[in-house]
Amino acid sequence: MSREAILQVRDLVKRFSGFPALDGLSLAVGEGEVLGLVGPNGSGKTTAINVISGLIRPDGGSVQVGGRSASGLAAHQLARLGVNRTYQVPRPFVGLTVRQNVEVAAHYGGRGHAEADVDEVLAFVGLEGEADRPAGSLNSAQQKMLDLARALAARPRLLLVDELGAGLGPADLETVRARLAALAQRGVALVVVEHLMNFLASLTDRVVVMNAGRAIFEGDLTAAARDPQVVQVFLGG
């Protein structure tokens, strides 16, 4: 990889009562790069994001952010280092308004610079009209955007996006794709977990394919589609 790595993951292992959800996962993401992370359900993509964002501790392996060890850091510390994420199932603060949701992240997640402008973040994700509504009253597509807004308010250098497009109609999907592309344009590194290949293809060349907790392929999408092991994992069940 030509660019300096913002994220370097080596040999991650995570077991859930013996079952290895991550079984020696290694991958790297360059500064400002967009990496697609694909794999069948249960292959460990969400678990990988949970470990990288500091929500769960791995049983083995290491995580480096910007060349420095981030192993053992708590989620709030990683947020302040510029690592943030969205959730596969959105997790808003339901008792707070949309604006307050974003405000918390802008204030606590900022990296010691000026705080992100809450109105601007809300406008970016198209929630400016819902600012004063309780977050619990948003529909699920809006809650996904609120997750994104909250992550952006912490001004990430690396954003992990877990199936943000899943369940969206074609129009919403295109909007989301355009927003992620705009973020990449601004230099935010992205790890995009997504099942929709067209969606990924327009955002990135490089993908990592996971199966059973480890990377089985790393390279560009078209090569992935021709790789016998990848084809077998997706078609052979």
């Binding site: 708590a74 947020a79 997790r91 808003p92 603060f93 918390v104 992240a105 909250r150």
Partner: peptide, 10 residues
Amino acid sequence: DDPASAATAG
């Protein structure tokens, strides 16, 4: 409302 989300919000 959500301790995990709160942590990722910093």
